[in-house]
Nucleic acid binder design. Structure first.
Length: 651
DNA sequence: GACATTATCATATAGACAGCATGTC
DNA sequence: CTATATGATAATGTC
């Protein structure tokens, strides 16, 4: 089908043509036939890089009103924003936690790009733009399967549908086994395709030979070097680039280092760009590797370094990229050859094989349309049975997408949000909403009953809801939902604030401890050698902590991780530099940045809760009724610390 | 006795969403 | 309380 045949305004057709898009790819054509331009609800299950973005654009441009594009990552939001912003006479807005147009003006846009959490938050807070949306496009719907974030997506979709019943919905998914089930849930037509714009062959390397799914083989006999090195060198000799996936940051770095000495490509400019101001060990290692045309990529990198690496690789200044799975799900960084060196990952429950879907996503990064003649992706069999590996991952169908809503964590926050947002005022209405979720479609909403009971009791006990006359969120409950923290965090903060308000010494360390000791803060790893020093530090500063250091109840070891995080952020605020922090705590620059960002967010949430405690009646939790309770000094310290954190980020 | 090889043991383990108030595409 | 690779240190082996 030709682009001209679409019932689209000429300016858009012209735009696509200048982009070199003249005819539709088969899966795009199928989506059009299914009615995406006629307002039909469609689920399109197709490989990455097979033209999903155009499918989305066709739906959004032909919709009768503003459109919303939902993504799972902030980085993807900016990527899509840039793409859509090029459309003629289309006003695009972006709504993510870090990068936010103001709420009021969002309804002036034709297209809004947002993360699923931001949409959830907007619904919770009754943002006016939400109900105006005529067409919702959900990118990567298969993330319904993800622990933690999957439930947010399905609840958000259920609520959106409730708010705007006649809204068009287009969901884009990776090719998963039960896409039909998702489509069925969404009352959408399923379009399924495995077509790719560039040939991809996948295979397994074992003992000097790669065996591909199309029957071909590739002989690569390594000398002394590891097979991965030989596989990399081979594609570079052939004029291609290689992307290697490994399972830890350290592996990514050491592999980059060992490959860097080959000097595959000279990239002094990239090295220089990274090198300027690269004071940390991570930064220096990166600059060094980049000099030889190799780089590594993981979440410990500073965002600036990350984007330099991504750009340099896209522009072919770098020959090899050694990456953790950040790159498989993130922005588009394709390479001719993808090598999945590690197919297992530590999960906290031993090493587990990577999900098929994830490996296929990695594979999908192989082949740059228009630049490479083909793409090839391979697993490396080292010490495992190559046949088993092949059987498991090559040409197989990914796992089914299964709702993860039946978890205490998910229900805790979403039950509260549902009550607080006015989606339900009693148990029957709550059950009705839950009955419209993917979980209910796939299993049975009745399976949630016990967990919901448990969660309601918890929310009642912590003063976030009242159950006397139906189900009603209290002021505190509405607040907790609005600032988007886990009820567990809310309760912990209320309790800690109560203690802090009776303390003589409330310092930056105190308020940092409060926010670091919550469910929403990621915990740090405490080395055994570090544990002694940390507990000594805790003893010495016992008067500044809300937890009783000397007669501690509960898990002291895990609280030390809290102390470590609080102390680290305290140092960061005090002006200690990234290299120093890296050395002292073994925390990479990118992690510091994220920790600071989260702490700042949680401090502001805590601030709101503290203000509530100050003015409103104290709920029946924690200390707080006696006359010595002083919230003002705590509040002041919270504000001060948050500001200090913001200032520290500027340097 | 100097040094190489091997046994033992400790260590560390992917990623990343959200609020609010201002002014940055 | 799960598993594996790595790096440091100790123990053993070789010339």
């Amino acid at each position: 089908m030709d682009v001209r045949d679409l019932s689209l305004a000429p300016k858009y057709i012209e735009h696509f043509e200048t982009q070199g898009i003249e005819s539709l790819y088969p899966p795009q054509e199928a989506a059009v036939e299914a009615g995406i331009t006629r307002g039909e609800r469609v689920v399109a299950a197709m490989p990455t890089a097979s033209g999903k973005t155009l499918v989305a654009q066709l739906a959004m441009l032909s919709a009768d009103g503003p459109a919303l594009y939902v993504v799972p990552l902030r980085a993807l939001a900016t990527e899509k924003y840039d793409t859509f912003a090029e459309l003629p006479d289309v006003s695009v807005g972006i709504a993510t936690g870090d990068y936010d147009a103001d709420d009021e003006s969002l309804d002036e846009h034709d297209i809004i790009v947002a993360t699923s959490e931001k949409v959830d938050s907007a619904i919770r807070n009754g943002a006016n733009w939400v109900e105006a949306i005529a067409c919702v496009v959900v990118d990567e719907v298969h993330l319904l399967n993800a622990h933690g974030r999957g439930p947010t997506l399905e609840i958000t979709l259920a609520k959106l549908r409730r708010l705007v019943p006649d809204q068009q919905l287009v969901a884009l998914s990776a090719t998963v086994g039960n896409a039909a089930e998702i489509a069925d849930w969404l009352d959408a037509e399923l379009v399924r395709s495995t077509w790719r714009p560039i040939d991809l062959r996948t295979g397994v390397y074992d003992d000097g030979e790669v065996t591909f799914d199309d029957g071909t083989t590739l002989s690569i006999v390594p000398g002394d070097e590891p097979p991965t090195t030989a596989l990399v060198a081979d594609t570079i000799d052939d004029g291609g680039q290689a992307l290697v996936f490994v399972n830890s940051r350290r592996e990514a770095e050491t592999l980059a280092q060992s490959l860097g000495v080959h000097g595959f490509r000279q990239a002094p400019d990239v090295a220089a760009e990274i090198g300027t101001g690269a004071t940390t060990s991570t930064g220096q290692a990166l600059a060094e590797a980049a000099d030889g045309g190799v780089a590594f990529h993981h979440a410990g990198l500073r965002p600036e370094h990350r984007s330099i690496v991504e750009r340099a690789f896209r522009e072919r200044d770098l020959a090899v990229l050694c990456a953790t799975p950040t790159l498989a799900a993130g922005v588009n960084v394709p390479a001719r050859r993808v090598i999945v060196r590690d197919h297992e990952r530590f999960t906290g429950d031993g090493y587990e094989p990577l999900p098929i879907l994830e490996v296929h996503q990695m594979f999908g990064r192989a082949g740059r349309p228009g630049l490479d003649p083909y793409g090839e992706a391979m697993l490396v069999a080292t010490g495992v049975d190559a046949d088993a590996l092949c059987e498991q991952y090559i040409g197989t169908e990914p796992e089914r997408v299964e709702s993860k809503l039946d978890s205490r964590e998910a229900l805790r926050t979403h039950v509260l949000a549902t009550l607080a947002g006015g989606f339900a005022g009693d148990r029957a209405e709550l059950d009705a909403l839950l009955a419209s979720t993917f979980f209910a479609h796939q299993r049975d909403a009745a399976e949630l009953t016990d967990l919901v009971d448990e969660v309601l009791s918890y929310l009642d006990a912590t003063g976030m809801i009242r159950r006397d006359d139906g189900l009603v969120a209290t002021d505190l409950g509405r607040l907790v939902s609005r600032v988007y923290v886990d009820p567990l965090t809310g309760a912990a903060v209320v309790e800690a604030l109560g203690t802090a308000a009776t303390m003589d010494r409330v310092t930056t360390l105190t308020v940092l401890e409060i926010v670091c000791d919550t469910e929403d803060m990621s915990t740090q790893y405490v080395r055994t050698e570090e544990a002694g020093r940390l507990s000594e530090f805790a003893m010495r500063n016992a008067d500044q902590f809300t937890k009783p250091v000397h007669d501690f109840e509960g898990n002291f070891q895990s609280w030390l991780a809290t102390v470590k995080t609080a102390r680290l952020l305290d140092d960061w605020i005090a002006g200690v530099g990234l290299p120093e922090l890296d050395e002292r705590y073994g925390v990479a620059p990118g992690d510091i940045r994220r920790l600071a960002e989260r702490a700042e967010w949680l401090l502001s949430a805590t601030e709101v809760i503290a203000e509530h405690l100050l003015t409103g009646p104290t709920p029946g939790i924690g200390a707080g009724q006696d006359s010595e309770t002083e919230y003002e000094p705590v509040l002041e310290r919270l504000r001060e610390t948050r500001q200090a954190l913001l200032d520290a980020a500027d340097d």
